[in-house]
């Protein structure tokens, strides 16, 4: 039990907070984060903003092109570039 820390510094808390936005944080990490949030006002604010950011991005349904598609585009573009420069 002595190894388990209940108090973590803020940068670690932020790290866990970022992780939990992507569902990468373990249960223990989340518990510790919440303990930290009880007494740390700055981190409370940060984690609140972080949550809103995730929600906004999810709501906006942004997409992007996959890598393969970009590579194909690059090939085509380069072909035309060569044609033009010749």
């Amino acid at each position: 039990m002595s190894k388990l820390k209940f108090m973590i510094p803020c940068d670690e808390a932020n790290h866990v907070c970022d992780k939990s936005q992507y569902k990468d944080a373990s249960l223990w990490e989340k518990v510790i984060l919440n303990i930290h949030l009880i007494y740390c006002r700055a981190c409370r604010k940060y984690s609140k903003n972080n949550g809103i950011l995730s929600k906004t991005i999810k709501k906006a349904e942004v997409t992007c092109l996959d890598k393969e598609c970009k590579e194909n585009m690059k090939k085509d573009l380069n072909k035309v570039l060569k044609e033009i420069s010749n």
Binding site: V62, T63, C64, L65, K70, M73, K74, L77, L81
Partner: peptide, 15 residues
């Protein structure tokens, strides 16, 4: 600079 177009703008334009 067309060489960087796709890296920089492809996603933006696509979206």
């Amino acid at each position: 600079n067309p060489n960087k177009w796709i890296d920089l703008y492809a996603d933006y334009l696509f979206n």
